[in-house]
Nucleic acid binder design. Structure first.
Lengths: 239, 239
DNA sequence: GCGTAGCTGTTGTTCAACAATCCCTCAAGA
DNA sequence: TCTTGAGGGATTGTTGAACAACAGCTACGC
């Protein structure tokens, strides 16, 4: 044993697993992918922007081939659109995308909530925490933080299903959703009405009223979809 | 106007869009991806098989860079596992993958069925047809065909939600499922019991009994999951 | 048996080159 | 004025070669 034997084995094994992801952050292609993913979702690259190979190669200091591997991964996540012989562009979500996305969210999120059987206290706390963070941020008037807390809330709802694949799917959908947010809407008007509903949903889950929670959530999503599609339609003529 | 003016504009535009997909079948990377995807799902490359870059390059007549782009796409679909500095391998699904996959299927498929509001006759027919094909194949003793008909049935069920993203998600899940099938199970023992249930589900949908159809489907999936995990556990010691 | 140094084959990444394609400009013609 | 077509420049698609970095194996010494 070369490691301090006073520490339980399971203990430092999990800690190493956490550090591991941080150290060997995979290949260059994967690192580039993460950088671009973050830049796109945070709005640094605006929807419709062209991602020139030559420019990004010199900016990031990687070769074209490495960059192209990253483009392929981002394309699978629908964050960029790969147009043959024309280049790679940050995706510009259309109204159809909003509808499609919310149809999927409704099925996934409501399904995760409805099928919930015996939620652990830790699971409920994971859902409650983002709600509190949202309320706190709203009190301070930080509407950008309210938005990210809202996304974390929905991510936690999906995590109730306990499926790694579903979690990754949800991550992708929320990233695409942030792309839609960049096209429109002041964060306040969009997120404020949902703070109370988030609390309501958590309360129902805590009380074991899954069906009711799923119904409230479905209404939540339907309203958000309507709000976004109307904003998109108002914006469409300008395009 | 150089095009026949007797034909409505919208008419030939949609026709061109169809041909378009057939003509520019994408880049070499995408074609290689499709070839490998088919080869993996049909079992030509067995789970655990190493996909050597050099071998595939010469076999397919493409460069390493192109092949690596294809590997990235297949990795996102979880058909291959990319191990840094070790290579690319056809994925070997574990028991945890079966559980995860079926948790997701249950939410997605049952959700699509339960939320169904006004199914068109065409939609119902799209679900009914694979069921008929399955029964026909069973009568002829072609159990491999029964399996593919079953997958088409579930694909059609998911399509009831009317979401392109959900359809693609389902395609990916079913491809991964075929990977699991290759690890075990005679097609007959696995698919035969579900022929009758598929009929029952279609009947319930046709009668507008969505809730009941979703319940039957949930039972269907739970049973299939149990069957697969038991087979996997019996197979595990050999690995 | 154990650890270690070296060897070998594979992958990770870069670079340079060329082909294919798009897009813009501009001129000719109806 | 509008359409058509021919260049030309810029960008992407793809290849091949080269080298670095790494995993797995072998053989050696202890």
């Amino acid at each position: 044993m070369t490691v301090n034997e006073n520490v339980g084995a399971q203990d430092w094994v999990t800690k190493l697993a956490v550090d591991r992801e941080r150290l060997d952050r995979g290949s260059a292609a994967e690192r580039v992918t993460e950088i671009l993913r973050q830049r796109i979702t945070e709005g640094f690259f605006q929807p419709g922007a062209r991602l020139s190979e030559a420019a990004l190669c010199s900016a990031l200091g990687v070769s074209r081939n490495t960059l192209r591997e990253a483009f392929r991964l981002l394309g699978k996540d629908r964050l960029v659109a790969h147009e043959l012989h024309r280049g790679v562009f940050v995706r510009v979500p259309a109204e159809a995308d909003i509808v499609d996305l919310y149809r999927m969210r409704s099925i996934v999120e409501c399904g995760a909530v409805r099928d919930l059987r015996h939620p652990s206290q830790a699971q409920i706390e994971a859902v409650r925490e983002p709600v509190r963070a949202g309320l706190r941020a709203a009190a301070e008037g930080d509407w950008r933080a309210v938005g990210t807390a809202d996304l974390r809330f929905h991510q936690a709802l999906t995590a109730l299903a306990g499926s790694a694949r579903l979690d990754e799917l949800m991550r992708g959908m929320l990233a695409e959703l942030r792309l839609i947010f960049h096209l429109m809407a002041s964060p306040r008007e969009f997120h404020e009405p949902y703070l109370a509903r988030n609390e309501e949903i958590v309360g129902l889950i805590d009380a074991g009223e899954n069906q009711a929670a799923a119904r409230v959530l479905a209404g939540y999503l339907a309203d958000a979809e309507r709000q976004l599609t109307e904003a998109a339609r108002a914006l469409a003529p300008s395009i």
